[in-house]
Design a protein around this nucleic acid. Sequence first.
DNA 1: GCTCTTAAGCGTAGCTCGTACGCAATTATT
DNA 2: AATAATTGCGTACGAGCTACGCTTAAGAGC
Lengths: 250, 250
Amino acid sequence: MADEIELPDEVTLLWGLRETVRRGRKPSLTVADITRAAVEVADAEGLAAVSMARVAAQLGNSTMALYRYVKSKDELLLLMSDAALDGPPNLPDGQDWRTGLTLWAQGLLKMLRRHPWTAQIPISGPPVGPNNLWWFDRALRALGDTGLDEEDKVGVVMGLLTFVHGELRLSTELSKGYVENPEAFSRQYGMALTQVVDAQRFPALSKVIAAGIFEGEVRYDEEVEGEFGLGLFLDGVAAFIERRTERQGY
Amino acid sequence: MADEIELPDEVTLLWGLRETVRRGRKPSLTVADITRAAVEVADAEGLAAVSMARVAAQLGNSTMALYRYVKSKDELLLLMSDAALDGPPNLPDGQDWRTGLTLWAQGLLKMLRRHPWTAQIPISGPPVGPNNLWWFDRALRALGDTGLDEEDKVGVVMGLLTFVHGELRLSTELSKGYVENPEAFSRQYGMALTQVVDAQRFPALSKVIAAGIFEGEVRYDEEVEGEFGLGLFLDGVAAFIERRTERQGY
DNA sequence: GCTCTTAAGCGTAGCTCGTACGCAATTATT
DNA sequence: AATAATTGCGTACGAGCTACGCTTAAGAGC
């Protein structure tokens, strides 16, 4: 009935709800084609390589043809950021919340690391893309039997998302330099720090450096690094759930 | 003695260690001037407005003059990202670790929110800028009397940094749309979700929507939103410290 | 003080990008 | 067949980064 409420532009775009037409020349592309091509380019050559011309070339079309399907490059970026979450990991249901959320966060991180450029796309609004909402739903589902009310669940999931995005921004981008040249990376970094950090201004930091944390094998192992912080956060969630359910005599 | 080890480019840049010269025309600018001007532009008009020409105009110089001080725009962005952390909040010493870290994270977030464009600058390597290291040091210092070893401290601080960066990326960018038009934001968003989310594919999410979490007053109050996740994380740190110190018979 | 060396200031120009506009080609409707 | 609607795309413009090289200014050596 109330179908006539006009949805925002981004929503109709992301859900493929743009009106289908009758008359005129047949489209030779689809929005999905363009998105896929753009993702391919970004995966292979980085987000900086994604220009309208480059994407069009990937598809064998001219640059301007794309603008019949997408209003601007920003729209294309929006599509890409939802497309990056494609492919359902299909987490096993029926776990306790902690393993559920751990698998969820790890799966999300793994997926996003396959498309590291997502961290560079500016966020333009709350999540509305189907894949984004799909992931959101799965996280909420993992919290299903915790006794938290809906608002708290959203808070927890938002916190997890916050963490995952931070992880993506920091570790992934950092480790880019690391995997290219691990030895030079850690050795040079340690050296540079010792040269520049003096114990007067940076007492705590220079203690860390003295302990040799930054020399030798810097463990920028993405897995390990992510686990640690994630574990801390989930410990916090556990404490929170306990507090909440106690108070409610659960 | 071992002063002769060549520091990486970025380090000499960020610490102002580029060789001072004798002969030739006197420089009319400094790297600091340029950085300050660029930050002004970004604060006032956003990162997109920061072009070499715009910054030069801000300083009353020509575009190409800047390239005598900075090798590329990327170098300028690097300088900006360290400059954004300027101004010591000078956290009170001698607190327990939890209030110390809470103040630290809140102070960092507050500072970064005054320069929201930092989230859009791609990270090119581990932190080496003086201000970055200064903040790092303060966080480590707050963990001084917890009995954690240096490696664990670094892990905790990295986790906090991860969280803060995620917070900056998600909430800050999101709330941009919100403060511009709060009512349209929440109302439209809730509406769009109800139109598009069906209970079959998104069972948990549609329960949340049904509970009215996204309608009405969406509480994108930055303070509150940040506190919640941060509190969860710190709860986790507390549990971690307890575990560690128990095991070591502390 | 004169000359030489070195470095700063900057105009020009080339390349890449995003995209507005308009015309030609193509297809469904009448 | 004629018409209307749409897609494909060539051209063009403005903005951005920056390589190059010339001009200008300031210290160094005599």
